[in-house]
């Protein structure tokens, strides 16, 4: 019996290999989990003490003053994110749907390469481009210029997600619609997009969670501001810039606020990305 199945020595070596492989697998998986929990745990530990109601409702105060808050950064990040989404979600959906529905069009290959290319550009360059295209002509830093920079980061994420989602819609859905005498355009709008809606929304929200933590592109564009700004043509504060400024300040209470803001930002992104995945998994 052993002669046909290999020797005991060979077998025990394979059992050993198998165990070793499983051990490495468990170790690596644990490492990833540990990394995430350490980062989140550390930020919670450092930041939780400053978080209370006034942290969300007050403006930053001078060092040493009480009731310091990050209202301006929260509103600024919201403003930047909404503006960037208004640019990149419609364009991204249009582009992704077009690419998925006309896979043989000669431009699609170029578009795909361009989308990958844009995704590989370091984010600070989008800040520089937005500075040249928007800040310089307008003569000042502004929320709009920050949103333009962020939308360039968001666009390829949305396009890719939409393209994937639309491609996953079975051809039989399109055939069912076309066979009823529906035009290709209405088939796309009324059948294909509703079928792909989950993927489209997931992609858009992933794009939002990606840009809400971006710092580099905002340095030359939204710039930052200690004030509550409601004009999109003024420099505006954002969470990452606030964290950067406060964490590098020499004042201990400002550094604390930096940690608190980090915690808020991390929770926002976490809820957004985990939440969207969970909701759209059905």
């Amino acid at each position: 019996m052993h002669s046909s199945l290999g020797t005991d020595a060979k077998l025990s070596r394979r059992v050993l290999q198998d165990r070793l492989f499983k051990l490495i697998l468990v170790g690596v998986a644990l490492g990833v989990v540990l990394l995430l929990t350490t980062i989140i745990g550390f930020v919670i530990q450092q930041g939780i003490s400053v978080i209370n109601w006034s942290f969300f409702t007050h403006l930053p105060q001078p060092p040493g003053a009480s009731h310091s808050g990050i209202l301006n950064a929260i509103l600024g990040t919201l403003m930047l994110t909404v503006l960037a989404s208004l640019i990149s979600i419609p364009v991204g959906i249009w582009c992704g749907v077009a690419m998925a529905e006309h896979p043989l069009h000669p431009l699609v290959k170029w578009a795909q390469v361009s989308v990958d290319g844009i995704q590989s550009i370091p984010s600070i360059l989008f800040g520089i481009m937005a500075y040249l295209w928007v800040v310089v002509p307008m003569g000042q830093f502004s929320a709009v210029s920050g949103a333009v920079a962020l939308s360039m980061i968001m666009l390829p994420i949305v396009i890719r997600a939409v393209e994937e989602a639309v491609r996953r819609v079975p051809t039989t859905m399109r055939e069912a619609s076309l066979a009823l005498g529906v035009s290709p355009f209405r088939t796309t709008i009324k059948v294909v997009i509703p079928c792909a809606l989950n993927g489209i929304l997931t992609g858009s929200l992933l794009g939002v969670s990606r840009i809400s933590g971006e710092t580099a592109p905002l340095l030359f564009t939204a710039f930052g501001s200690p004030f509550l700004v409601i004009s999109i043509f003024q420099p505006v504060q954002s969470m990452p810039i606030l964290i950067y400024n406060y964490a590098t300040s020499p004042y201990a209470d400002w550094q604390q606020i930096g940690w608190g803001a980090s915690l808020v930002l991390i929770l926002f992104c976490f809820v957004l990305s985990v939440g969207t995945r969970w909701v759209f998994k059905r």
């Binding site: 079975p170 859905m173 069912a176 619609s177 076309l178 066979a179 005498g181 059948v191 079928c195 809606l197």
Partner: peptide
């Protein structure tokens, strides 16, 4: 115009899931 006059049913049932 032809497709509104000529109905089709496919190999696999394909009702619109939405």
């Amino acid at each position: 115009l032809i497709r509104r006059q000529v109905g089709m049913v496919f190999q696999r049932p394909n009702p619109f899931p939405t």
